[in-house]
Design a protein around this nucleic acid. Structure first.
Lengths: 143, 143
DNA sequence: TGGCCGCCCATACTTAAGGGTGATTTAATG
DNA sequence: CATTAAATCACCCTTAAGTATGGGCGGCCA
């Protein structure tokens, strides 16, 4: 968390630095102020979009919903003791997503996903994600 | 779609206009260029965040939508250019074995398996073994 | 209300996986 | 015979995955 904040801070600092750099290099060449401003605006818009994507889409706006194609696996899932969240992770894992991608999709941290996967491996009695996928298929945990 | 793009274009135009407005109002007051730039940067960062939010909240990670052509294994395997050995590795990989375990089972070294898997990933156009398994299933490379 | 559980997050560490490059051997093939 | 492809293996380096541990928070329940 703190690391993330720090990272953003540093990133912005670097950006400001680059800004000044560009400023000197371009201004001495008599480039128009308008052009320079446009550049800055564009650059920071891009940065804004990026950070916006990273930050604002967190926590809320989570309507994955679905919950359609299931019925008989619920019992199996419950029997093994896999929680709802863990099941979500399992599904995404089976789709070939990396932990990081799963974390992004569920709007949680990488560490959280690692915890979930670890617990999953314990409950499925496997050691690797590929085995987990196989085991889940064998147990017909997927619709 | 086009309407959205147009909308954003117009919005940005307006913003640029406001920019110029602010520019004149502040520059005549002898405000420092740095301050002005900072303001612009901040403003457009905010705009970026906003647009980012709008974009990400709507878009929702399109499903693979690949739906590649599908026949059956032998032909498919040859078509993609997967060699016999690579196919063996792929099968074992799909069973959830680690590279080391595959190496042991085929009586070759770990590095060899790594080479095979790398080539497989290239040919299957994936980045991870879990994806490779998924892709192989989609393409019905398995009996 | 105290305890359990699910969920989230973090730090620190170890191991597995993957990328890039280069090299050798063998078998097939024009 | 020279070329080509498959298969084998090695070294280095980066990133992802997995393990261990601990803390915080909110809901549920006996």
């Amino acid at each position: 968390m703190w690391r993330t904040i720090l990272l953003y801070g540093v990133s912005f600092a670097i950006l400001i630095f680059l800004l000044k750099l560009i400023e000197y290099r371009f201004l001495v060449r008599d480039l128009s102020l308008e052009f320079y401003l446009g550049l800055v605006a564009l650059l920071f818009t891009a940065v804004g979009v990026w950070t916006g994507k990273k930050i604002t889409s967190k926590k809320f706006v989570t309507p994955p919903a679905t919950t359609a194609p299931r019925k008989h696996n619920e019992g199996q899932v419950a029997k093994i003791g896999i929680s709802k969240r863990e099941y979500e992770v399992l599904l995404l894992m089976a789709k070939g997503l990396s932990n990081q991608e799963i974390a992004d999709q569920l709007h949680v941290s990488l560490n959280t996903i690692k915890t979930h996967t670890s617990n999953l491996f314990l409950k499925l009695e496997v050691k690797r994600r590929t085995q987990a996928i196989q085991k889940a298929k064998d147990l017909e945990l997927f619709g």
